[in-house]
Amino acid sequence: MAAEPTAPRGGRIERARQIESRKLARRSFLRVSAFAGLSLFVGSMTAGFLGFFNRLKPVGFGGVVTVAASRVPAPGAEPVRISEAKAWVVNLSGPEGDVLGVGGTGGIMALYWKCPHLGCSVPWNPGFNGAAVNFPGVVGWFRCPCHGSTYSRAGIRVFGPAPRPMDTMAITVNGDGSISVNTGAITSGGTDNPLRAVSYNG
């Protein structure tokens, strides 16, 4: 009585066991995939976060930005806006922009466009001559849209609440006439800004 129905019952038990093991397989599949998804999510977040600390080879702003020779302004021409470097490239002709007379002799310089006051991006205003009394004949100034700090072509602060002249970026002139602006090497602006200009014959 106990032996005869073993085979069919064993088949049912076996089937049930298989069904049961399939259920278990589904549950562990869900568990594994849930943890895999979670670790993928956390891992990608971590990788993205660690990416912020990559200061070895930054690209774009923070790294070295090359400005082609065709975009470099001629001496005395209007400053050129280099968006990818967040900078104005200025080509001073002679003592231009050296409004406080520290002995600038011209050359090319890159001015970080962030206002040293509260950080607005400073536009070039080619027609502005509002400093006519103190600096007669000088037309064209950088003038901050937020609080009116006014800077000469060489970034010298002459007016407004900014605590110092515009910050400068290190630049090197390449053989083909292009320039490399190192947007990671920003020096606080000072009255010696015009002396930081690099001579350029491109």
Partner: peptide, 27 residues
């Protein structure tokens, strides 16, 4: 009374530029 670059202007001269390169109004 504050126009572009926070320059003192009369209210009817006040213009706002969106600051798009090439469209910054000079004078």
């Amino acid at each position: 009374f504050r126009g572009q670059g926070q320059e003192l202007v009369f209210p009817w001269e006040l213009k706002v530029s969106e600051g798009i390169p090439g469209q910054e109004a000079g004078h």
